[in-house]
């Protein structure tokens, strides 16, 4: 079956970490550059994130994401470098344009923060099975209904995509143009929507009934077929991250 999850199976230390710890790391990557706005701190965080991605051996998988992010960051660097109010120190000229130091530094600050956050999320997404993440969260007290919604999306969307393909094939076999220029493809998309959306709605009703009769709304406490996964050093890692954030705060306030 096709999967829309980006999870990549590898046998590394990062994969063996508690999903909750990875969520803590995201918090860390978000907060630290805010607490300590120095560009050096951001660079350290970025390097840390990249090291984790390399250790998890998923760096290659991040390239498409990073190239997209870089495209956007490039526009930020150009615009800020050229036009940021308060630009004074000229770095160099090309043609009629002048690149300024202040704008460039500001843009780099933004860029590092973005890369930092993106890599923290990539660590979570690429090295954690969605079902493991949700199960950890449900055990920590997330409503099992929300958990169900999150996990089922990963299976039901690919199902919808394959039914969409079947419908496209059926329409193509009756002579509809589905390939060619953008306009033809847009036109081919419209008659798809009816069957796919109405079909999904009907399926949703049936699935809701099937869930009901399997005790989905049962009031009692739930049990789990799989034993709770034991992650080593979870507590140490999580407390370590919290301590790191606390230290950064203290640094900011005191120094």
């Amino acid at each position: 079956m096709r999967s829309i999850s980006l999870y990549t199976e590898r046998n590394t230390v990062i994969h063996a970490m508690d999903p909750i710890s990875k969520l803590f790391y995201i918090l860390f990557a978000l907060l630290i550059p805010i607490i300590l706005p120095s560009i050096k701190v951001s660079i350290v965080c970025v390097v840390l994130g990249l090291i984790f991605l390399l250790v998890a051996r998923v760096f290659k998988k991040t390239i498409p994401v990073f190239s997209f992010v870089f495209l956007i960051l490039l526009t930020v660097i150009i615009i800020q470098g050229l036009f940021r109010p308060g630009n004074q120190t000229t770095l160099f000229h090309f043609g009629p344009f002048t690149l300024y130091k202040e704008g460039l530094m500001f843009a780099f600050g933004v860029a590092f923060r973005v890369i930092n956050i993106v890599s923290a999320f990539m660590i979570l997404i690429l090295t954690t099975k969605p079902s493991d993440l949700v199960e950890s969260l449900v055990r920590k007290g997330l409503s099992s209904k929300i958990g169900y919604v999150i996990i089922s999306v990963f299976q039901i969307i690919p199902e919808m995509m394959s039914s969409m393909e079947t419908i496209t094939d059926a329409q193509r076999s009756r002579g509809m143009e589905t390939e060619g220029n953008l306009q033809t493809r847009m036109k081919a998309f419209l008659p798809l929507l009816g069957p796919v959306i109405l079909g999904s709605l009907a399926n949703t009703k049936e699935r809701a009934m099937a869930l009901e009769v399997r005790g989905f709304n049962s009031k009692g406490p739930k049990t789990y077929l799989l034993e709770e996964k034991k992650y080593r050093y979870s507590k140490v890692v999580q407390w370590g991250i919290l301590l790191g954030i606390a230290c950064a705060l203290a640094w900011r306030i005191l120094v």
């Binding site: 099937a210 399997r214 005790g215 739930k222």
Partner: peptide
């Protein structure tokens, strides 16, 4: 048969467990 699959389980074995988990049956 399609719409009776919960869509939240990776294997047939776990799929069958879905109702039992909701009812709170011991492992």
């Amino acid at each position: 048969p399609f719409t009776q699959i919960t869509g939240s389980k990776m294997t047939v074995y776990e799929e069958i467990a879905f109702g039992l988990e909701n009812l709170g049956i011991s492992r």
